[in-house]
Amino acid sequence: MRVHRIIPNLHVPDVGATADFYAGYLGLSHEDLGLGWVTRYVASAAEDGATAGAELQVVTRDGSAPQDAVASVLVDDVDAAYDEARARGYEIVHPLTTEAWGVRRFFVRAPDGNVLNVAAHRR
């Protein structure tokens, strides 16, 4: 398994109310994910390489998991990540699931108590 992107999840009461700050004030591009309970804001990498791009998601609640995650960790092989988490004895908070919106994912609790959404987009 290789991690290729980590996106922090900020918990908010209303994703729609975040646009003025994150898009208007910070100038991030808004990516509507079409789910209502989560949206993403993105800063593109600078052409001169001076900055690397950044992403964050604002989330009211997770759409299908029993607990919210502090970050989404996108990996190249989510099934292998799931098998390894189980082999290491980590608590699986949400089972390996292919969600209706095109993501295969599971939630795992890190030893420090943080819950991570480990995911891969369907190919």
Results as ranks from 00 to 15, higher is better:
Arg2Gln: 11
Arg2Asn: 15
Arg2Lys: 15
Arg2Cys: 02
Val3Glu: 00
Val3Tyr: 01
Val3His: 04
His4Asp: 11
Arg5Val: 11
Arg5Glu: 14
Arg5Cys: 06
Arg5Asn: 12
Ile6Gln: 08
Ile6Trp: 02
Ile6His: 02
Ile6Phe: 02
Ile7Gly: 04
Pro8Met: 07
Pro8Glu: 00
Leu10Arg: 04
Leu10Gly: 03
Leu10His: 01
His11Lys: 11
Val12Cys: 03
Val12Trp: 06
Val12Phe: 06
Val12Asp: 00
Val12Pro: 00
Pro13Lys: 10
Pro13Ser: 12
Pro13His: 02
Asp14Tyr: 04
Val15Glu: 01
Gly16Phe: 03
Ala17Asp: 09
Thr18Val: 11
Thr18Asn: 01
Ala19Cys: 02
Asp20Thr: 12
Asp20Gly: 09
Phe21Tyr: 15
Tyr22Trp: 13
Tyr22Val: 01
Ala23His: 11
Ala23Met: 08
Gly24Ser: 11
Gly24Asn: 11
Gly24Thr: 07
Tyr25Lys: 11
Tyr25Thr: 10
Tyr25Arg: 15
Tyr25Ala: 12
Leu26Trp: 12
Gly27Asp: 09
Ser29Glu: 13
Ser29Asp: 14
Ser29Gly: 12
Ser29Arg: 15
His30Leu: 15
Glu31Arg: 11
Glu31Leu: 15
Asp32Gln: 13
Asp32Tyr: 06
Asp32Ser: 09
Asp32Trp: 07
Asp32Pro: 05
Asp32Leu: 09
Leu33Met: 12
Leu35Pro: 00
Leu35Arg: 12
Gly36Cys: 07
Gly36Gln: 10
Gly36Asn: 08
Gly36Met: 11
Gly36Leu: 09
Trp37Gly: 00
Val38His: 01
Thr39Phe: 00
Thr39Cys: 08
Arg40Tyr: 02
Arg40His: 02
Tyr41Pro: 03
Val42Met: 10
Val42Phe: 02
Ala43Cys: 09
Ala43Trp: 05
Ser44Lys: 15
Ser44Asp: 12
Ser44Asn: 07
Ser44Met: 10
Ala46Gln: 13
Glu47Leu: 13
Glu47Ser: 14
Glu47Trp: 03
Ala50Phe: 06
Thr51Ser: 15
Thr51Trp: 09
Thr51Phe: 10
Thr51Met: 06
Ala52His: 06
Ala52Glu: 08
Gly53Ser: 10
Gly53Asp: 05
Gly53Pro: 06
Glu55His: 05
Glu55Cys: 06
Leu56Cys: 13
Leu56His: 03
Leu56Gly: 05
Val58Cys: 00
Val59Leu: 12
Val59Glu: 06
Thr60His: 01
